[in-house]
Simulated scan of single mutants.
Amino acid sequence: MSTIAPVENGVAVRTARQAEHEELTTTIIETLAAAEGVDPLNLDIRIGDVVDPDALNALFDPATDRSGRVTVPLAGYLVRVSATGEVALYRS
């Protein structure tokens, strides 16, 4: 049983779309920084503590024909990423 399902009925506090030629993890960090009102370089968050960044980037590489989405808890948010390059943050 997943504890992440409630985000389906929630409202995202911040959303973004992956820029062309940008890694998905970069988009996640920039989105988290914007939500926290800090520079991405000053964000004290490590994606690698909850998910393998290289695997996440490869899973949703824009050059591949992929579908689906993944939601992970990170820094007080539930971060949902999709194969379309969308990143949505929900308060956890």
Rank of each mutant, 00 (worst) to 15 (best):
residue 5 A to G: 04
residue 68 G to A: 12
residue 63 A to N: 14
residue 70 V to T: 13
residue 53 P to L: 04
residue 53 P to M: 07
residue 25 T to M: 09
residue 44 D to Q: 13
residue 63 A to E: 15
residue 15 T to I: 12
residue 68 G to E: 03
residue 55 A to S: 08
residue 78 L to R: 11
residue 9 N to K: 12
residue 21 H to Y: 13
residue 46 R to L: 07
residue 88 A to Y: 01
residue 70 V to C: 04
residue 54 D to A: 12
residue 50 V to W: 01
residue 71 T to G: 06
residue 17 R to N: 12
residue 67 S to C: 14
residue 61 D to R: 11
residue 26 T to E: 10
residue 31 T to C: 09
residue 7 V to Q: 12
residue 6 P to C: 05
residue 61 D to K: 06
residue 73 P to S: 07
residue 89 L to V: 08
residue 25 T to V: 12
residue 15 T to Y: 04
residue 13 V to C: 10
residue 9 N to C: 07
residue 37 G to K: 05
residue 80 R to T: 13
residue 15 T to W: 01
residue 23 E to I: 00
residue 49 D to N: 11
residue 1 M to E: 08
residue 53 P to Q: 02
residue 19 A to M: 09
residue 90 Y to P: 05
residue 37 G to M: 07
residue 44 D to S: 12
residue 16 A to T: 01
residue 77 Y to M: 03
residue 44 D to V: 11
residue 18 Q to S: 03
residue 28 I to C: 07
residue 42 N to M: 08
residue 19 A to T: 07
residue 49 D to I: 05
residue 54 D to C: 01
residue 1 M to D: 10
residue 4 I to P: 00
residue 2 S to R: 13
residue 1 M to A: 12
residue 80 R to M: 11
residue 57 N to H: 06
residue 41 L to R: 15
residue 23 E to R: 14
residue 27 T to Q: 02
residue 49 D to H: 13
residue 61 D to T: 10
residue 55 A to R: 03
residue 24 L to R: 05
residue 45 I to S: 09
residue 5 A to F: 12
residue 51 V to P: 08
residue 24 L to K: 01
residue 21 H to K: 15
residue 1 M to K: 07
residue 29 I to Y: 00
residue 39 D to L: 01
residue 90 Y to S: 09
residue 23 E to K: 13
residue 3 T to A: 15
residue 39 D to E: 09
residue 87 V to L: 04
residue 73 P to W: 04
residue 43 L to H: 06
residue 87 V to E: 07
residue 57 N to Y: 04
residue 39 D to S: 06
residue 77 Y to V: 01
residue 50 V to K: 02
residue 3 T to K: 15
residue 30 E to M: 02
residue 25 T to E: 03
residue 57 N to K: 06
residue 88 A to K: 08
residue 78 L to Q: 07
residue 64 T to M: 15
residue 88 A to L: 01
residue 61 D to H: 09
residue 14 R to H: 10
residue 82 S to L: 10
residue 76 G to K: 05
residue 81 V to A: 04
residue 87 V to H: 02
residue 75 A to E: 03
residue 15 T to D: 00
residue 33 A to D: 05
